[in-house]
Amino acid sequence: MGFKLLSKLLVYLTASIMAIASPLAFSVDSSGEYPTVSEIPVGEVRLYQIADGVWSHIATQSFDGAVYPSNGLIVRDGDELLLIDTAWGAKNTAALLAEIEKQIGLPVTRAVSTHFHDDRVGGVDVLRAAGVATYASPSTRRLAEVEGNEIPTHSLEGLSSSGDAVRFGPVELFYPGAAHSTDNLIVYVPSASVLYGGCAIYELSRTSAGNVADADLAEWPTSIERIQQHYPEAQFVIPGHGLPGGLDLLKHTTNVVKAHTNRSVVE
C-alpha cells in the first residue's frame, strides 16, 4: 500500500471513529477524501466538511520552486461564519470567499490569524475590503508590521502568557507558548472536538522541520505538551499544512522538532 493511500485511509478511519463516538456532533463529509496538494491548482481553494458547521479550507501556493498546501478553518456561528487564517495570499483568499459563498452561503463576518507569517495573514486586506472584521493577538499584529505583512485590524486580548485561553464565538483560542513562531495560536472547536494546530503542528508525513527561522526550538516541545494537557479530548487535529489526523500529530511534531534540534547540535 502506497504512503499517500495509507495517509488518506488514516484520515478516513479517524473521521469514521469520530462519527461513531459522537453521532450528534459529527456529520463528516462523505463526498470524498481530504484534498491534497496535487489536486488543488494554485489560485483555487477546496472546502472539506469535518463536522456539522465545521470545515477546513485548503489552498496551495508556490514557494521556492515548489507547491505547498495550506489549511485553515471555518466555523459556523449562528447565521454567520468565523474564518481562521487566510488562504495564503490575496488571490487565494478572494477564491476562498467565493467558494464559501458557493458552498455554504453564509457571510464571513470575523477572521482570526493564528500567527504573523504570510500563509496566515496574506489576504487580510481582501477580507477587510469584503467587510470582514480581522483579528490577531497584539504580538501577531506587531510582528506582521515588522515583517511588512498585512496586519489584522483588531487585537485579541488575554493571550499574552503561555497557557492563556479565551473564548471567541464558537471557538476557544489558546496560546501554548512559542513553537513554530513566538505568537502562534491554537484554535479548538469544543462542539466538535476539532483542534486546529496551525503551523505549530505537523502532518504525519512530514519528517523535516522546514521553516524554523522564527521558531523557538527549545520551547516548542513544552508548548505541545500544554496543548495535549489542555485538549486531551480532541479527536480531529488539523495541521497548518497537509493531512489531518488525531492527537498523534502532536507527538510526531515533537519528535521531528527534537530530531532537528539534535542534528543542529551535532553539526
Score class of each variant (00 low, 15 high):
residue 1 M to K: 05
residue 3 F to W: 07
residue 7 S to H: 12
residue 10 L to D: 14
residue 16 S to E: 08
residue 17 I to L: 10
residue 18 M to V: 15
residue 20 I to Q: 12
residue 21 A to L: 13
residue 21 A to C: 15
residue 24 L to I: 15
residue 24 L to N: 15
residue 24 L to G: 10
residue 28 V to Y: 13
residue 32 G to C: 07
residue 33 E to R: 12
residue 35 P to S: 08
residue 35 P to Y: 08
residue 35 P to D: 07
residue 37 V to T: 14
residue 39 E to I: 11
residue 44 E to V: 10
residue 47 L to E: 01
residue 47 L to M: 09
residue 48 Y to S: 10
residue 48 Y to C: 07
residue 49 Q to R: 14
residue 49 Q to Y: 13
residue 52 D to H: 10
residue 53 G to W: 07
residue 54 V to I: 08
residue 55 W to R: 03
residue 58 I to Q: 06
residue 58 I to N: 05
residue 60 T to P: 05
residue 60 T to G: 09
residue 61 Q to I: 08
residue 63 F to S: 10
residue 69 P to S: 15
residue 70 S to C: 04
residue 70 S to M: 06
residue 75 V to F: 03
residue 76 R to W: 06
residue 76 R to V: 09
residue 76 R to E: 10
residue 79 D to Y: 09
residue 79 D to T: 10
residue 80 E to R: 08
residue 84 I to D: 00
residue 84 I to H: 00
residue 87 A to N: 04
residue 92 N to Q: 05
residue 92 N to F: 00
residue 93 T to M: 02
residue 97 L to K: 00
residue 99 E to M: 14
residue 99 E to F: 08
residue 101 E to Q: 14
residue 104 I to W: 00
residue 105 G to P: 07
residue 108 V to S: 01
residue 110 R to P: 05
residue 110 R to N: 15
residue 110 R to E: 07
residue 111 A to T: 07
residue 111 A to V: 06
residue 111 A to F: 06
residue 114 T to E: 00
residue 114 T to Q: 00
residue 115 H to V: 00
residue 115 H to M: 02
residue 116 F to H: 04
residue 116 F to N: 05
residue 118 D to E: 08
residue 122 G to W: 07
residue 123 G to N: 05
residue 124 V to P: 03
residue 125 D to C: 02
residue 128 R to C: 07
residue 130 A to L: 09
residue 131 G to H: 08
residue 131 G to C: 05
residue 135 Y to P: 00
residue 136 A to K: 04
residue 139 S to I: 13
residue 140 T to M: 02
residue 141 R to M: 12
residue 142 R to S: 13
residue 143 L to F: 09
residue 144 A to W: 02
residue 146 V to R: 14
residue 146 V to D: 14
residue 147 E to R: 11
residue 150 E to H: 04
residue 150 E to L: 04
residue 151 I to C: 04
residue 153 T to I: 11
residue 153 T to H: 09
residue 156 L to M: 07
residue 158 G to K: 08
residue 159 L to S: 02
residue 160 S to G: 13
residue 162 S to C: 07
residue 165 A to K: 14
residue 166 V to T: 09
residue 168 F to L: 08
residue 169 G to W: 04
residue 172 E to K: 05
residue 172 E to C: 03
residue 172 E to D: 07
residue 174 F to C: 03
residue 174 F to L: 09
residue 176 P to V: 00
residue 179 A to T: 08
residue 183 D to H: 05
residue 184 N to M: 00
residue 184 N to Y: 04
residue 185 L to I: 12
residue 187 V to H: 02
residue 190 P to S: 08
residue 190 P to Q: 08
residue 192 A to S: 11
residue 192 A to M: 08
residue 195 L to I: 08
residue 195 L to T: 01
residue 196 Y to M: 04
residue 197 G to H: 01
residue 197 G to E: 01
residue 199 C to Y: 07
residue 202 Y to G: 05
residue 203 E to T: 05
residue 216 D to H: 07
residue 219 E to F: 06
residue 221 P to Y: 06
residue 226 R to P: 04
residue 229 Q to K: 14
residue 230 H to E: 11
residue 230 H to R: 15
residue 230 H to G: 08
residue 236 F to T: 10
residue 237 V to K: 00
residue 238 I to F: 05
residue 238 I to G: 01
residue 238 I to H: 00
residue 239 P to C: 00
residue 241 H to C: 00
residue 244 P to N: 01
residue 245 G to K: 00
residue 245 G to W: 02
residue 246 G to V: 03
residue 247 L to F: 12
residue 248 D to A: 11
residue 248 D to T: 09
residue 249 L to E: 00
residue 251 K to V: 12
residue 253 T to P: 03
residue 254 T to F: 13
residue 254 T to N: 13
residue 255 N to G: 14
residue 257 V to T: 05
residue 259 A to K: 13
residue 259 A to T: 10
residue 260 H to W: 07
residue 260 H to Y: 09
residue 261 T to N: 13
residue 261 T to F: 09
residue 263 R to F: 12
residue 267 E to F: 09
